[in-house]
């Protein structure tokens, strides 16, 4: 299978800040690849190196098998870029935002208009053709940015936090459309800090923190490899949890994680551990048993404090 993007020991610094450190990954043709991590983890920097708003400092980056330090126009012609910030042109109408951008790729007015109409329909914007993007809701703006990125029929669509700030309905609509695009053969690469988004869309993903890749795999694989299949959440401040319980869970063979003063017990057999908790002095009504998911992996790997708390 051929790679659309490949990175080997890729690094990028801004002054003394090492935004990306020695990361390696490969994105296959036709897959959806995700970068999961919180703000400042190095996700956006990695994408910017791919789409040409940032140069490569160290290591190798290959785009469609061509080594790059700054993405040349010939390769940008095969990319679609959805930046984190909606940089729509407020001086142009919704339709013109697409046609003028299409013209950059050499589309004739006719071609541009035909394509724009097609994508406005696809993204449900066909009744907004002549309004200013300023009049659109957050969700519609986001859809327009994605539609614009499709104007050159890219082989690789790059999405930097595609659904941040959208309400759940709008988010699901975007996901649905992105899946459709993938089924048409477009490769997708996205950054997100929504576990649900990563789970819904990504065939494979990497978890990033402080410029490094902590883990890689499919969402299911990551859950299998990094945490036990069941979790019991303890909805009680740690000070009120009997001190011995943690040791008892460990002795039983479970794993204990602390996230922001909450305890999580991981086990192979959730029901079995659950049945023992009451005898260890922990009332069942403050506990919640569920299967482990991607968020547990993420929290376990990236530690217990968010970036904001560290600052």
């Amino acid at each position: 299978m051929s790679c659309v993007v490949r990175a080997e020991r890729l690094s990028k610094s801004y002054g003394s800040l090492r935004a990306v450190r020695d990361i390696s990954f490969a994105i296959n043709e036709g897959e959806c690849f995700g970068f999961l991590g919180h703000n400042g983890a190095g996700k956006s920097t990695t994408l910017k190196m791919i789409y040409g708003l940032s140069t490569v400092d160290q290591g190798g980056l290959w785009l469609f098998d061509q080594k790059i330090t700054l993405t040349p126009p010939s390769l940008k012609a095969r990319l679609g870029v959805v930046p984190q910030e909606d940089n729509l042109d407020p001086d142009l109408t919704v339709l013109e935002n697409l046609t003028v951008f299409g013209a950059l790729f050499g589309l004739s007015s006719q071609e541009g208009k035909a394509r724009a109409t097609e994508y406005l329909q696809f993204w449900g914007l066909d009744d907004k053709v002549n309004v200013s993007p300023d009049e659109l809701s957050g969700g519609l703006k986001r859809r327009l940015v994605i539609a614009r990125a499709l104007m050159n029929r890219p082989r690789l669509l790059i999405l930097d936090e595609p659904t941040t700030g959208l309400d759940p309905q709008a988010r699901h609509l975007v996901w649905q459309k992105l899946r459709l695009l993938k089924s048409e053969g477009i490769s997708l690469v996205l950054t997100t800090h929504y576990m649900e988004e990563a789970r819904q869309l990504c065939d494979r993903l990497v978890i990033m923190e402080a410029g490094q890749i902590l883990a890689e795999g499919s969402p299911e694989q990551l859950v299998q490899e990094h945490v036990l299949p069941y979790v019991i959440e303890v909805h009680l401040p740690q000070s009120q949890v009997p001190a011995a319980v943690v040791d008892q869970v460990r002795a039983y063979g479970g794993q204990v994680e602390t996230v922001a003063d909450s305890l999580f017990f991981f086990a192979h057999d959730g029901n079995d551990l659950w049945s023992r908790l009451e005898s260890w002095g922990l009332p069942p009504k403050v506990c919640h048993l569920r299967s482990a998911h991607l968020e547990d992996v993420y929290l376990k790997l990236t530690g217990t404090t968010s970036e904001e708390e560290k600052r």
């Binding site: 789409y51 040409g52 708003l53 126009p73 010939s74 940008k76 012609a77 990319l79 870029v81 930046p83 910030e85 940089n87 729509l88 042109d89 407020p90 001086d91 951008f101 950059l104 790729f105 990125a149 050159n152």
Partner: peptide, 14 residues
């Protein structure tokens, strides 16, 4: 303010 240049740079231009 409008980040027009950033947007344009996503196209095949320098």
């Amino acid at each position: 303010y409008q980040k027009t240049f950033h947007a344009i740079l996503a196209g095949p231009v320098t």
